[in-house]
Amino acid sequence: MKNTIEKITSIPGVRGAAVITKDGLLIDKVFYDNESSEVVGAMVAQISREMENSLGKATDEIPILATIYSSNGEIVFLSQSDFIIAVLCEKKTNIGVITIKIKDIAVELKEQLKK
């Protein structure tokens, strides 16, 4: 699983990526600092829960992809039916590449979690 996540962290500007449960608990992570992963995980889980309550549950077929742009960095996350992938990156990171990669690794992780 770590190898799969590392595909995203190898993109320049990415500060870390994590796979978390819908409850915000970490399944696996590649983060440069421990504190960030927990905070990102909690935030992403909470937003994802709110979105699902309002817009409908995220499924593997129709996941929820969200990007939060802030003045010093960006958080991209993809919410599937069982897990969420969250990526923390710096300001000038190529979000397009991250969006494509995050969708790719979501498919891989789904397979891995099924096994």
Binding site: I20, T21, G24, L25, E38, V39, A42, M43, A45, Q46
Partner: peptide
């Protein structure tokens, strides 16, 4: 409630 949020807060 979300356990991850409880953990952080």
């Amino acid at each position: 409630a979300i356990i991850g949020v409880i953990n952080v807060m």
